[in-house]
Design a protein around this nucleic acid. Sequence first.
DNA 1: AATGAATGAGCGTTCATTCAT
DNA 2: TATGAATGAACGCTCATTCAT
Lengths: 204, 204, 204, 204
Amino acid sequence: MTAATVPASESRKSDRTRQTILDAAAYLFREHGFSATTLRQIASQAQIKAGSIYYYFGSKDEILDEVMEHGIRVVYEAVENAVSALSEDAAGRLRLETAVATHLYTLLRYGDYTSANIQNFRHVSPTIRDRNRAIRQNYSEYWTGLFKQAQDSGEIRQDIDLSIARLYLLGTLNWTIEWYDPNGDATDVLAKKFCALFFEGAAT
Amino acid sequence: MTAATVPASESRKSDRTRQTILDAAAYLFREHGFSATTLRQIASQAQIKAGSIYYYFGSKDEILDEVMEHGIRVVYEAVENAVSALSEDAAGRLRLETAVATHLYTLLRYGDYTSANIQNFRHVSPTIRDRNRAIRQNYSEYWTGLFKQAQDSGEIRQDIDLSIARLYLLGTLNWTIEWYDPNGDATDVLAKKFCALFFEGAAT
Amino acid sequence: MTAATVPASESRKSDRTRQTILDAAAYLFREHGFSATTLRQIASQAQIKAGSIYYYFGSKDEILDEVMEHGIRVVYEAVENAVSALSEDAAGRLRLETAVATHLYTLLRYGDYTSANIQNFRHVSPTIRDRNRAIRQNYSEYWTGLFKQAQDSGEIRQDIDLSIARLYLLGTLNWTIEWYDPNGDATDVLAKKFCALFFEGAAT
Amino acid sequence: MTAATVPASESRKSDRTRQTILDAAAYLFREHGFSATTLRQIASQAQIKAGSIYYYFGSKDEILDEVMEHGIRVVYEAVENAVSALSEDAAGRLRLETAVATHLYTLLRYGDYTSANIQNFRHVSPTIRDRNRAIRQNYSEYWTGLFKQAQDSGEIRQDIDLSIARLYLLGTLNWTIEWYDPNGDATDVLAKKFCALFFEGAAT
DNA sequence: AATGAATGAGCGTTCATTCAT
DNA sequence: TATGAATGAACGCTCATTCAT
């Protein structure tokens, strides 16, 4: 957007309020779950009154919708950007390791949003779920591509079932939301350990 | 049971109703989440009336409590039993593989209960959470023992960080709840593939 | 009743249970009010189960009915008996003083029942209220008679409005339920002080 | 009120609604008792919907609390004001007679509130009861002061037990709630008759 | 752009009552 | 006589949502 049609300061304040609401909602959705979070709690956290939320969002579901979509997009885009930033002839394993590190970092950095996405996916209305599923699908295929490159280049064994391997690796990554402690390993250290285990295995 | 002190049919009927309620609740908690599940839905699913639930449970929270506790116990006990059934001199890797297969099987077989445990752990009252945490803790230590045995016997490399390895492997297993499809691989097949990846790794 | 048609021991047990229920109910009605008292509380206090109450009473209202009726009858009958026991030529003032002492004693001695009567009179169904009102009415007239005798015999001044005097004196007596403390004056001492005030007044 | 800091019409409307709810509640509490009164009844009487009550009060108990407190305060303050308005050298008997007349008038004028106070005192939560008891205590001591003055000035006999006399007289007054009929004596006439009986007695 | 006031639908829960045993 | 199990109706209360201002 190059030219604002709305006076800059006003528009910015409005956007800021909107974002504040989303952040508050994401935080509370993660902490208490979607159903157990009230609009009054969100409003209070965002330092406004409940009725005002409706100036920015049409319904509570719409907020969840936006939170969830952000939760998947932010990871997808970060990973894509990080991998794209590598030199074109980077090895498949390096590409995968970059994806792992970035996925892990973003997943945990935007934990309120990514948690909301994971926790509510099953429970959300078909409309929202379908839109989300589509993005997840694309993201999955993106990873499948990364795995394939590594297998084609001989960095992953031919006998490996790639779709299982993807679920296996991403499962481990996503599960970190359940236990990751910022006082423990930094996410890049953790990513390294995970990649080592994934490629070399645990056996002697 | 050779001599019943309680009229068999009556006592069983009552127990059966109780169990029906728990099953209905577990199913709906997984499907819609705890907060979004109403007692009227549970009652309807259990083919009774909402008020009757209170003959068996003191509150909705108490139902969740019991569902969650079952969700962790059923897995723990199954794994312990399966590993104990192995011959005493079974190799560390075999013990781990048995644990993986049993954990996976039970996790998915009682998915309504195990899901409830996972999904609601963060949101549940401190009392319930603490009781649950204790069981989780014991179960974690049980796995730590299995890993240690395998490392001591040289079946897992010395340089492997066991606590990371445990989180890595169990993360992958637990995450299957999010995607497992009964029409795909049977759980024992899946377990084998996971174990192969875990021990041998994906690299050439 | 001269000849029992029901084996004595059984009938007695049944009557005893019935009375236990009434006592429990009266106590709880006074303590928590009628609406706030549950049949399960009454049953528990009477050491039976809630369903069993229906063997003895048709409904919760029926219990209240009986409790309230007892609450007024027990006082009425005690006062009537005590006054009748006086010699026929007893003075009007003595008769009144006897009535006061007995009313006060019985009111407080059977406080659970008499309280129930007072507290619930306004709120009770028309049927119950009407039956109760009739007894109250008779009792009032009985007192009016006592006052009249004393006035006719010159023991109460001619200028005294008897119906006001009756409300004045009985009001004071009935209100003791709100404050009487068994550790303070015994009821007969209290009655004497009240009578002194009533007849002689407080002025010099 | 010369300068309003709050938009007059808005603030008044809100306050008016609040007061309407209190009046409706007091009326129904007296008529049916606290437990037997539903919030839907209160709402209906106040011409709003049940949910709206919670915009003004946190719970049903909170309403009762406020009703009861008003029930004792309104009497206390009216009596204090009326007595204070007398000339400083007013006789003890005149002060007492003024207190009687004002107590009686206010008790009956705000009967819904004063009844609620009396009927529910025993059943109410300890917190509410304690707060109420404190006010009652103060009011009692205020009366004790009035009696003492009259005794010190020789208008009440020395041999009269003042604490009994106070319970005796106030008992009679408070009991009028049970029987007072607006079609009978006006409250000031009634007060005069009561005072006459109290001071001069009924005997010849 | 924001809010105070109100609402309707529905929630978890209670309870008098019923009835087969 | 007595009770375990069940129910239906209603209760106190919550909350997403609306709307005039």
